[in-house]
Design a protein around this nucleic acid. Structure first.
Length: 333
DNA sequence: AAGGAGATCAACCGCCGTATT
DNA sequence: AAATACGGCGGTTGATCTCCT
């Protein structure tokens, strides 16, 4: 039953900083044999390290295609905007920053960007101006209302995101199975843009690139539909009944459209449709979201088209609709 | 020049999803 | 079906570096 015991339980394995000799051994071994199974690599390479440590050293430091040193302004902007879209999914963010590792990006975010945004009064989690300053003064009822709306909005976003990720994961599994069943062609295009450390799914490639292949794009749409359905069900199951659930459902649906329909430029029309479908107080927030999400996607599209990967064939043009806070941040950098 | 505080970043830890037996 | 290993991810730590007083 199961596999043989793990070497990581063995005593005497070295920890801590790597020496140049160890680096040399690891490098030489991988250059000659490839990393293969990380578990058995240390023994074969003559290293007293666990496989996990070797993998980390390779992916974060020794890999030849790693760019080190200062992040450029464009890279900083990319990180900020992708973080607004993806949150702390560093490996997914790293996919869009060639030659940068997820660990490096994570460190840079935590030590530089997060602080800068905070300093400028921008919440690094929500990427919106901080609202905690109004907590003390003013009418208690008005303050409470604003806070509850903000909380509800965040809750909607979180539930939507959760459902979306779930659908993406499902889609990735399906795409993988399809790829196995019908060889290369499309997988070659996908593998060309994935970083070795990334687990970004094919659906995500389709999501960002918009043209990773008709199959993937179509599949990504299907995932969005599933996500929206899940989100709608979640709304009905939980706090949001009737009209509120319908509004949330419509909002999530439009958001899915914006997220996935990267190759179409009619974002305004989508938001107009969303406004028609929705009702009540969410509309004001929808307008904010419009510029917010659109700017992020524009940036993603632009960066993808200017990079060598040429993932996308069409570029959304209104790049100046940059997330206002991030634009301010960029100006201050 | 010394030492304390803060910043940086490589590496570790623990968890999770998937693969394997 | 269950148990276990493996690979990968995000969060955290701690050694080292840099700056300030």
């Amino acid at each position: 039953m199961g596999r043989s015991p793990c070497c990581e339980k063995e005593a005497g394995l070295k920890k801590g900083p790597w020496t140049p000799e160890e680096d040399q051994k690891l490098l030489a071994y991988i250059e000659q044999h490839g990393h293969g199974c990380w578990r058995s690599l240390p023994t074969k390479a003559g290293l007293r390290r666990c496989g996990k440590s070797c993998r980390l050293r390779w992916t974060n430091y020794l890999r030849p295609d790693i760019k080190r040193g200062k992040f450029t302004l464009q890279e900083e902007q990319t990180i900020i905007q992708l973080h607004a879209l993806l949150g702390n999914r560093w490996s997914a963010i790293a996919t869009h920053l060639p030659k940068r590792t997820d660990n490096e990006i994570k460190n840079y975010w935590n030590t530089h960007l997060k602080k800068r945004l905070t300093k400028m009064g921008i919440d690094p989690v929500t990427h919106k101006p901080r609202v905690d300053s109004d907590a003390g003064g003013g009418g208690a009822a008005a303050g409470t209302g604003a806070r509850s709306r903000a909380a509800a909005h965040l809750s909607h976003t979180a539930q939507w995101e959760s459902a979306r990720l779930e659908a993406e994961a499902r889609l990735a599994r399906e795409a993988k199975l399809r790829a196995l069943a019908s060889p290369p062609q499309t997988t070659a295009a996908a593998s060309g843009v994935d970083s070795p450390t990334s687990t970004l799914s094919f659906s995500e490639s389709a999501l960002f690139g918009g043209s990773a292949g008709p199959d993937f794009h179509g599949a990504a749409r299907a995932a969005a539909v599933q996500a929206v359905q899940s989100y709608g069900e979640a709304c009905q199951e939980h706090h949001f009944g009737g009209a509120a659930a319908e509004t949330s459902f419509a909002a999530a649906g439009t958001l899915a459209g914006v997220l996935l329909d990267c190759s179409v430029t009619g974002a305004d029309q989508r938001f107009a449709a969303r406004t028609e479908a929705g009702s009540g107080e969410l509309q004001g927030e929808d307008e904010d979201d419009k510029g917010y999400w659109n700017s992020i996607l524009n940036m993603v599209n632009s960066s993808m088209s200017s990079s060598s990967s040429s993932l996308t064939s069409e570029v959304v043009t209104d790049a100046e609709m940059f997330l206002p806070a991030a634009a301010t941040a960029a100006a201050e950098f």
